[in-house]
Design a protein around this nucleic acid. Structure first.
Lengths: 204, 204
DNA sequence: CATTGATTTGACCAACTGGTCAAACTCACG
DNA sequence: CGTGAGTTTGACCAGTTGGTCAAATCAATG
């Protein structure tokens, strides 16, 4: 393993290549379904060489996960209490949709983990994410109480945003097969904007 | 392997127990992540005994998948061209939500497969499901053209229903962690009804 | 209750997998 | 251009996994 010194040029390049390859493999086969050899081949390195940079398969996975969560929560953090409620929410939806388009592998990696019971993420979900969700659910509730958006269960509202946007990344294989030539991301932004606008625009 | 004769009492019981166990194991670990031994233990049988009833691990998986798809498409088939459009759609949403509540393992099994690129389902999706979706999308389009429901991209509308309802099964681990004591299925039916009612109720 | 087919299992195997290690190779630097 | 640290790899290992098989056990039928 490389010393605790500043990483050399080679270390930087290889660690990045490995994480890139690992993301590819883990996101399409899950943790158990992926082999170190697969990742090595995808990274263009030998298996022992991978294990020179990362102590184990799990270490690669954990590093990916750690990096993922921050990126993942960022769009929600951006929900601004000072902004115009409906526009804030619509912007959040679009940011989240954009992430499904730009980082589908990250989305699938996350989905794989949660579908299988979130064994390695329970902790962070129960702490960091929960706090953030409670804060933002309260913000939504305040907006509703002030009559600035229509009423709806705040947490379910958040779930629905995650669900609808991530669907385009996680179920990409199904969505694309069913839509044929048409790119799902052509119509998705407008569809979701319409949906949430109709749902949340205050009556009268 | 049992002969081609009518299944004996024991065969019926054991095959059912195996499929039940396989559903449990496959849906929580994915295909690669599951071992025959795990399934055997869950079914209360020995590994060679499992392989006496099914020629391979894949055979168990395929039989589960085959049975799954029919059940899965049924609620959509029930969308009745003769019914009142909005109520038909709302009823479909509730049927689908009910399936997430009653058959979460089936939902996760399906999700696992699609997230990983649908290697074993491409075919059926591209044929059976596609035909059904095109038929129902046309029905929705007709309803919109007739001004009986608000306009929205029909296929995305279907995707959104799948996404929102299956989310409660597929992301159960996350949803329950974030909701604490409250059962997600308490508020979900009303939330989804409100959502689609506001979105689709024609503008007078 | 004997016999035959159905059912069950312990022992086993070959392939695969995550991980180790010593030896070889490469590279930056004095 | 020599040298030591950084990098790479072939060979290897132990544990796991899907699957086989012959022998043992069980159940139904005459």
């Amino acid at each position: 393993m490389p010393a605790d010194r500043a990483p050399t040029r080679i270390q930087k390049k290889n660690r990045a290549a490995i994480l890139e390859a690992a993301l590819d493999v883990f996101s399409s086969h899950g943790f158990r379904g992926s082999t170190v050899d697969q990742i090595a081949k995808a990274a263009g390195l030998s298996k022992p060489n991978l294990l020179y940079y990362f102590p184990s398969k799990e270490a690669m996975f954990n590093e990916l996960m750690a990096g993922l969560l921050d990126t993942w929560l960022d769009p929600l953090r951006g929900l601004d209490p000072e902004g115009e409620p409906l526009e804030e929410i619509l912007a959040y939806v679009q940011r989240k949709l954009q992430m499904s388009r730009d980082y589908p592998r990250e989305s699938r990696l996350y989905a794989n983990e949660i579908v299988q019971g979130a064994p390695r993420l329970r902790e962070v979900i129960a702490t960091d994410l929960k706090v953030l969700v409670e804060e933002k659910a309260q913000l939504l509730q305040d907006w509703m109480d002030a009559g600035r958006i229509n009423r709806a269960h705040p947490q379910h509202l958040l779930f629905s945003i995650w669900s609808l946007t991530q669907h385009y990344a996680d179920f990409d294989a199904q969505v694309r097969t069913l839509m044929g030539e048409e790119d799902p991301f052509d119509a998705a932004p407008e569809y979701l904007e319409t949906l949430y606008r109709r749902m949340l625009t205050p009556k009268s």
